[in-house]
Amino acid sequence: MDLTRDSLAVAPDLLGMRLRVGPVTLRITEVEAYQGTADPAAHAYRGWRPHTRHLFEAPGTLYCYRSYGIHICGNVVCGPHGSGTAVLLRAGEVVEGLDVARARRGNAPDVRLARGPGCLGQALALTLADSGRRLGEPDLELLPRLGPVGEIATGPRVGVSVAARRPWRFWLASDPTVSSYRASPRLMRPEVVAGENGPET
């Protein structure tokens, strides 16, 4: 896959592909595109910072961050080197290593093992130390689709309070592993809706 392309082109093409991290492989079913320094909702919006440095590395780099102080979320860096663009991995179906993923997720139902970016990170045992790793390294592979993916749906990104109406979330329509849409509660604040003037962190 050509990860040097824009994140809006890469994101839907990741659907149906398989990501292997150690003993667990999942089929990607939901993603979100982030447009780097041009996107107020992106971690890269304010430019290079120590904790976002991996976003500005070569396409195919993994960028991991901690969400709400608990969950580790994974992104695939894409676009031109240094652009800060990436695709957030939001959900997937575990297709290999089910027993390992079940144990990591407290024996959650299989359909929910990697539903949502925090659950996906837990199922794959991602840590902040994985940030900066490159696809193609040992135990970190992006594998081809095994068949057609069917209909791809698109809509607003989940939980962001700026640039919230951009339809940059992509998912496999009717797939049970896809997460539910939730708007950010901050969207109820008029200044946030009108301004869209600060990045998500």
Rank of each mutant, 00 (worst) to 15 (best):
M1Q: 11
M1T: 13
T4P: 04
S7H: 09
A11Q: 04
P12G: 13
L14T: 07
G16C: 08
G16T: 06
M17T: 14
M17S: 07
V21M: 13
V21I: 14
G22K: 09
P23T: 11
T25F: 08
L26F: 06
R27P: 00
E30A: 02
E30N: 04
A33I: 06
T37A: 13
A38F: 03
D39C: 02
A41C: 04
Y45N: 11
G47R: 11
R49W: 01
H51K: 13
H51A: 12
T52S: 11
H54M: 10
H54P: 00
E57C: 11
P59D: 11
G60C: 07
T61Q: 02
T61S: 06
L62E: 04
Y65Q: 02
Y65A: 01
S67T: 12
S67Q: 13
Y68T: 11
I72T: 14
C73M: 09
V77D: 05
P80V: 11
S83K: 03
S83Y: 03
G84S: 04
L89H: 02
L89N: 03
L89C: 02
R90T: 11
V94A: 03
V95W: 01
E96F: 01
E96W: 01
L98K: 08
D99H: 10
V100N: 06
R102C: 03
A103R: 15
R104F: 05
R105W: 02
N107S: 10
A108K: 13
V111E: 15
V111S: 04
R112E: 14
L113E: 05
A114Y: 06
A114I: 09
R115W: 00
G116T: 03
P117I: 08
P117F: 08
C119Q: 14
C119L: 12
C119V: 00
G121I: 06
L126H: 06
L128M: 13
A129I: 07
R133V: 06
G136F: 09
E137Y: 04
D139M: 08
L140V: 06
E141G: 02
L142F: 10
P144V: 12
P144R: 10
R145P: 00
G147Q: 12
G150T: 06
E151Q: 14
A153C: 08
A153H: 03
P156M: 07
S161H: 15
V162K: 03
A163I: 02
R165S: 09
R165N: 10
R166H: 12
P167F: 11
A173M: 01
D175S: 07
D175A: 14
D175F: 03
T177C: 15
S179P: 07
S180D: 15
S180C: 09
R182C: 09
R182P: 04
P185R: 12
P185Q: 09
L187I: 11
R189C: 04
V192D: 10
V193I: 09
V193Y: 10
E196R: 10
N197K: 14
T201G: 11
T201Y: 13
